[in-house]
């Protein structure tokens, strides 16, 4: 019985052709598969290149026909005999509304992430994280619908109040009317990017080494001191990348802005009064009345938006790459 368990000497292995083990010889199946998958990667690069190339091509057509300065004109009239259009108002509106959104959303999102990771009762924490992830999937048009039909009517009271006390600054002056202003857009964008910023920050906070936190606790730190000394330093690059992700969304958001904002081609000092515009909103609302040249003009403004989002994403990636060396992530 025992002997049967002992393996007999294996038959002498057939001499292996050196070419088969060297790994250089490729079976046809492998060649096809590698070709397919590499081809897909290349297709992706080609698409990105094509996006840049075709947008630039149509934009050049548009800007050549523009009788006004493309960057400084406060007007959008590409259909007239003397086509005049410029992106000054759009750039201003896009930047301002995104900044408002970031200022509101990032601290709140970090707060929620901390709440879920460190403050909430344990039984509540994981369903909450789940709900936040689900909320990140709500389509933007629904935020837009809610913003236009629910948020806007509810904000005029707050705006009159701000006007009473801060109206002297000019920024917060508010003449009564529907609150369809850049500030409302900023608030709505903040609500929209909250889930995604929260979700990414929470992931990072949960990865903080338990040892760091326990060490701080053992030294007698309060919960806030633990967070300040071990959680936030560890999560800083994560917070930055989450914010940049949110910023990218806020910059390119179309439908929510198009439904909430009442646009105009003027830059006013007041953020609470209707007016202004953003790149994406302008494209969506001017598209239906645009002829071919008008569409080219819109493409030109889209190219600017494309470049801005590229720069933001690139900056985020640089920051993260540099911070990585100092954060505890590699420890």
């Amino acid at each position: 019985m025992d002997t049967s368990a002992i393996p007999q000497n294996p038959p002498p292995a057939a001499p292996v052709e050196p070419s088969e083990v060297s790994g250089k010889s490729v079976r046809p199946g492998d060649r096809v598969f590698l070709g397919l998958s590499r081809g897909s990667g290349i297709a992706l690069l080609v698409i990105m290149a094509a996006i840049a190339a075709f947008l630039t091509y149509r934009s050049v057509l548009a800007i050549q026909g523009d009788k006004a300065n493309f960057f400084t004109t406060f007007e959008w009239d590409p259909t007239g005999a003397e086509p005049k259009f410029g992106i000054a108002v759009l750039a201003f509106g896009t930047v301002v509304s995104s900044i408002i959104a970031m200022v509101i959303a990032v601290p709140v999102a970090v707060g929620i992430a901390l709440f879920i990771s460190h403050y909430a009762p344990r039984k509540l924490a994981s369903p909450l994280g789940y709900v936040i992830d689900l909320l990140a999937a709500v389509p933007s048009i629904i935020y837009g619908l809610w913003g236009a039909l629910f948020l806007v009517p509810h904000l005029s009271g707050l705006y009159s109040w701000l006007d009473d006390y801060l109206g002297w600054t000019g920024i917060f002056s508010y003449s009564q009317g529907a609150a369809r202003s850049l500030f409302t857009v900023g608030i709505l964008l903040a609500i929209m990017i909250l889930p995604i910023v929260t979700s990414v920050s929470r992931e990072v906070f949960l990865q903080v080494p338990k040892m760091h936190e326990e060490a701080a606790l053992a030294l007698g730190a309060t919960r806030w001191e633990v967070i300040r000394m071990s959680v936030l330093p560890f999560g800083r690059s994560g917070i930055i990348s989450a914010s940049m992700l949110g910023l990218g969304r806020a910059l390119g958001e179309t439908m929510a802005v198009a439904t909430v904002l009442s646009p105009s081609f003027l830059i006013g000092l007041s953020l609470l009064d209707p007016g202004g515009g953003t790149f994406a909103q302008n494209i969506a609302s001017k598209f239906s009345e645009a002829d071919t040249f008008g569409q080219d003009a819109l493409i030109a403004s889209g190219l600017v938006l494309f470049v801005i989002t590229l720069l933001v994403n690139g900056a985020a990636r640089l920051i993260i790459a540099r911070r990585k060396e100092y954060s505890g992530a590699n420890a």
């Binding site: 698409i47 094509a50 910059l251 179309t254 889209g302 989002t309 590229l310 994403n313």
Partner: peptide, 23 residues
């Protein structure tokens, strides 16, 4: 490819629409 996948993630939806529109 890795880099441009990251970049592509950040392409606003309206820009993707404009690209197909132009071509």
């Amino acid at each position: 490819v890795t880099f441009f996948v990251d970049v592509m993630t950040g392409v606003p939806s309206i820009v993707a629409g404009l690209f197909v529109l132009s071509v």
